[in-house]
């Protein structure tokens, strides 16, 4: 695979979107962590420009400390930007009212361990000012969706990591949100759990919801995400549709059937002259893992901001 492939990935699949379709937008978003005396400690995010459109699954990728979590925290208003803007539903991230339409599953399920699953979901339902009957129905629905009917009366401190994760997911969906932010959604899940989580994410998209997730687990991202952004050391390195990013453009793959050995010999000539029945003709794809490692290696060799592809 050529190195230039990743850098020069052409824009493809770009759709014209109106402003109302943009669910999440960051403009020149930067975050500098400072110590008590105001001295700069880490430049965690450098001038990030992103748009997440309605109905897509957007993945934020990057090694540890690349600024993925910082971005999500800035979008949630858990952190305040040093400069730039983070907009969610066209509202500033510090605006509490945006939370009405958001669901958030944190990296680890930061839940109250002394509550049981029902109490947890009921509590979060109250925070959305949901009336008691709506809350009860929604809690029952979510508990059966995440498969915790048998354990709904047990305190969360007795839960396994996977079970806690499911309650965490259920609380993120309690308000039937339009935008769901998932921080490492598959960590701590077994292969079946991971599969279920991925199916659920796709199902959410089918319901017209927007998902913004960040993950280290590249295979998961490759499986579910429509578009991804790759961050490294606070800088955006790559942005685009997963299928186009992974396409190896210099190479064309041909698949055909019903050809004799002679014909195969001929085909080169025929193809050279544009002829024959081509069953498929496409660029092979690389894996996301390779793409990711290439970007990281390249970025470390040549630090600095690189213009990402534009979709």
């Amino acid at each position: 695979m050529s190195e230039s492939m990743t850098a020069d990935a052409p824009s493809e699949g770009q759709e014209e979107t109106s402003a109302s379709d943009v669910v999440v937008e960051t403009r020149n978003l930067s975050k500098v962590y400072r110590d008590f005396w105001g001295r700069q400690k880490v430049n965690a995010l450098k001038a990030l420009d992103l748009e997440v459109k309605q109905g897509e699954i957007f993945g934020l990728l990057g090694p540890n400390g690349s600024g993925k979590s910082t971005t999500i925290k800035l979008l949630l208003g858990l952190l305040f930007p040093t400069s730039g803007q983070a907009l969610v539903f066209n509202k500033d991230a510090s605006d509490v009212s945006k939370n009405e339409r958001i669901g958030y599953l944190p990296e680890e399920s930061y839940l109250y361990k002394f509550l049981n699953a029902s109490e947890t979901l009921d509590f979060y339902g109250r925070l959305f000012d949901m009336p008691a009957d709506v809350r009860r129905d929604r809690v029952n629905e979510l508990i059966s969706m995440v498969g915790l009917e048998g354990a709904r009366r047990r305190q969360l401190k007795e839960y396994s990591k996977g079970m806690t994760r499911r309650v965490g997911l259920a609380q993120a969906l309690i308000n039937d949100p339009e935008l769901i932010l998932l921080d490492e959604p598959t960590t701590g899940l077994d292969p079946i759990g991971t599969r279920e989580m991925k199916d659920l994410i796709i199902k959410l998209r089918e319901q017209g919801k927007t998902v913004l997730m960040c993950s280290h687990l590249l295979a998961d991202v490759q499986d579910v995400c429509d578009r991804i952004a790759i961050l490294h050391r606070g800088e955006l390195k790559e942005l685009g549709r997963v299928d186009s990013l992974l396409k190896v453009r210099e190479v064309t793959q041909l698949q055909a059937q019903g050809l004799s050995k002679e014909a195969e010999e001929e085909i080169r000539a025929i193809v050279a002259k544009d002829g024959g029945e081509l069953l498929s003709m496409e660029n092979p794809t690389t894996t996301l893992e390779e793409l990711f490692l290439n970007i990281v290696t390249d970025s470390e060799a040549r630090p600095g901001r690189r213009a990402p592809s534009d979709d």
């Binding site: 109250y112 979060y124 308000n175």
Partner: peptide, 14 residues
């Protein structure tokens, strides 16, 4: 410290 506040302030809680 336990970050349980994350799941609170990301709800429409004032």
């Amino acid at each position: 410290k336990n970050r349980t506040i994350y799941t609170i302030v990301t709800k429409p809680v004032r």
